[in-house]
């Protein structure tokens, strides 16, 4: 069964006097353990599509199903609950709270979890992941003292600390150098292959897109399969 299903979704918004169709009648499915890339030029609607998939906003028309649940017309509280349970987010500039420590940032999703674990359990989970990503000694450091690569790894751990099944990544390597970009993409690949996480990456970098199982092209709001 598809973990994520998007059916005829459209979204537009007003920009001064113009109506901009950010997403037009988009449909696609993503299965569990799949890594999918969405590429397209700047302003093509990729971030809007990601907001829709992540049920941050509701579509003007169409439906979005998450693990069989119709999430597109839920109220804000329900959408928050679904997001907390299913989605992790990785963005270009890491989206970390600079004044907090890496550990505090990673724990943010656990604050709103309906199935809270104990503090000890969370510490154990986080320590295991941090060790795997080689940032164990950085957990107590403030984020502003971390390098770009370390920050992105903290963001990755945060995106799965609640055992979220879907990772949405918006230009995850945009702020990283070549080596760190490779490391991050390898981690995401590992999450998909070994931990059966579903990964949706928005990128304009074809070398990143090549690492994925499927590639879509979004141009002027229209999604089409992309073949290399």
């Amino acid at each position: 069964m598809e973990l994520l299903s998007v059916r005829n979704v459209s979204k537009s918004f007003k920009d001064h006097n113009y109506k901009v169709h950010a997403v037009r009648d988009v449909s696609f499915d993503v299965h569990q353990g799949e890594m999918v890339a969405i590429i397209g030029p700047s302003g093509s609607g990729k971030t809007t599509l990601l907001n829709l998939i992540g049920i941050v906003i509701s579509p003007d028309s169409g439906e979005i199903y998450v693990d069989g649940q119709k999430a597109s017309d839920m109220n804000d509280a329900m959408r928050c609950r679904i997001r907390n349970q299913y989605f992790g987010y990785i963005v270009q500039d890491f989206a970390l709270i600079e004044e907090d420590t890496a550990m505090q940032n990673i724990l943010v999703p656990t604050l709103y979890s309906k199935h809270k674990k104990s503090a000890r359990e969370y510490r154990e989970i986080i320590n295991n992941m941090a060790e795997k990503m080689q940032i164990s000694e950085k957990l107590k450091s403030t984020v502003k003292n971390l390098s770009g690569g370390e920050r992105q790894r903290v963001a990755i751990i945060r995106s799965i600390v609640n055992d979220q099944k879907i990772i949405l990544a918006d230009e995850p390597t945009g702020s990283l150098d070549k080596d760190n970009s490779k490391i991050v993409i390898n981690y995401l690949r590992e999450l998909a292959d070994d931990f059966k996480k579903t990964v949706v990456i928005v990128t304009h970098d074809l070398s990143v897109a090549r690492q994925c199982d499927r590639i879509f092209n979004l141009d002027d709001g229209i999604l089409t399969p992309f073949k290399l």
């Binding site: 928050c80 907390n84 989206a95 970390l96 604050l111």
Partner: peptide
């Protein structure tokens, strides 16, 4: 705004 957005994304309702 980053702080609030992150919390909202990870499950904090607007309320």
């Amino acid at each position: 705004v980053v702080d609030y957005t992150v919390h909202h994304l990870y499950g904090a309702p607007i309320r």
